[in-house]
Amino acid sequence: MHAIEVSGLRKAYGNLEAVRGVDFTIEEGEVFGLLGPNGAGKTTTVEILEGYRKRDAGEVRVLGSDPDRPEPDFRERIGVVLQQSQLWPNLTVRETHRIFAGYYRAPRDVDEVIALVGLGEKADSRVKTLSGGQKRRLDLGIALVGDPDLVFLDEPTTGFDPQARRAAWEMIRSLRSLGKTVLLTTHYLDEAEQLSDRVAVMREGQIVRVGTPAELTTTDLQTEIRYRQNGEDVLVRTDEPTRVLAELTSAAVARGEELEGLQVRRPTLEEVYLALTAEEEVEA
């Protein structure tokens, strides 16, 4: 069963084509990362799936519903963390969770959710006294309090310090262990790589690559082989690292030489991503 199916999705704002024919599928229980620079169409795509915006063309199924004409329990089954939202500053963390819990037929236990997002000690504190990271955790808590099957996280760690990011990552991993499907948008590559089962890279309203982080890093860029010869650095980029390496090493062995500083390196997701988004500038 697919949690999300998208095909031929298009959306324009006036003359600006924000989403230009997007297709992807997300399986139940999968953490799917949507990656891309600002303005690539990530948020527009996600907001169409959440039911906030109408699409111009294409087919969309989210938990079996068309988000434009959702089944009655569609909103019982999704949890949304928006890029930027502020709640009521004078209510406590627990009161805020209780308000949202009251909207759902079968909410989770409020104190359990507060503990899950790591706000147990802040349960009776006013929202205005929370730090930025704690407020984001509150956002996540109220997205989880309805016990959704599918969670949308739009740039959940933007503006976090490294420690808060690690904590947020742990929480997102715990969502996976609860069996939730997660659609994560981010422009942090390490975040996508750490958390996602699969990643889609968006650029100018289209998806340019989809795959596991490992697939993206093996198929997209050539492997780099580095060594020193006669005091000079040599760099070889190749699609056939096994053959090139065998030739290099056997030649060196035949000459009785050592290939100094020999390194074989696969590109990181960051390099793949930069290569994919650099094409954009060449075309432009």
Binding site: Q84, F100, Y103
Partner: peptide, 13 residues
């Protein structure tokens, strides 16, 4: 402007 109205629209309320 704080996004509360938008946030509420994603709930069953």
């Amino acid at each position: 402007e704080n996004g509360i109205l938008k946030r509420l629209r994603s709930t069953p309320l």
